[in-house]
Amino acid sequence: MSRAGLVEFDDVHKYFGETHVLRGIDAAIDETEVVVVIGPSGSGKSTLLRCVNRLEEIQQGAVRIAGQSVTAPDADINRIRQRVGMVFQSFNLFPHMTARENITIGPRKVRDLSATEGEELASELLDRVGLTGQGDSYPNELSGGQQQRVAIARALAMEPEVMLFDEVTSALDPELVGDVLGVMRDLATDGMTMLVVTHEMEFAREVGDRIVLMADGTIVEQDEPERLFTNPRTERAKQFLQRLL
């Protein structure tokens, strides 16, 4: 058993049909901690992330947020998801709504926020992600980087306790990556608890409090960024990091 954290994985096993994609994950994320998950594609990083708000069901083990089980059959998943913000690789903004409506729909519909409160919240969040005055734009009128920042604002609008980032810069043109990472860096500085799956090693090194290296559905190694990047202990970690350099 790992120490009690805000998010806990307790012997998590996940199968896609016959394929055993998560093979007994034990980990915990503390409050305000930024944990960056890296590893080769197919290692189960995104799947692990998606188990936190139960977009994926697990077959064995448990995931808990603040001690409360996410994976129990009787868990109130809609309520739990309000506490977990998620940002996707493909943004998943709602194309028929403006940026402002994208941001406010969660709080408006799920929390019964009033229209005026919603307006305020939207402006505040748009400022925060560097999109002041873009509230009336539809997603298809925004660049990929802007869309992803709206998506971050949308997730923040629910005032989550933890934020999940699933390869959020992978679909972006290289010159747009920086703005999105900048917003994430600010969030980390503000003390948000974050679980980040990414291929941006520089970001991982700079912003991560801890790096989790996954391969073949298991955690190979986890450590502070400096130690893990400069002095990996396991052969598998050395192999993966070598290929990046």
Binding site: R81, F88, I105, G106, A151
Partner: peptide, 27 residues
């Protein structure tokens, strides 16, 4: 409608019916 739309809506805490009505059905 891409699956991501439902996932995006559900990840905000919307029920399936609410996500259908607000997000998927208009599209």
């Amino acid at each position: 409608v891409p699956d991501g739309q439902m996932e995006g809506a559900r990840s905000l805490g919307m029920s399936r019916v609410m996500a259908l009505r607000q997000v998927v059905f208009p599209q």
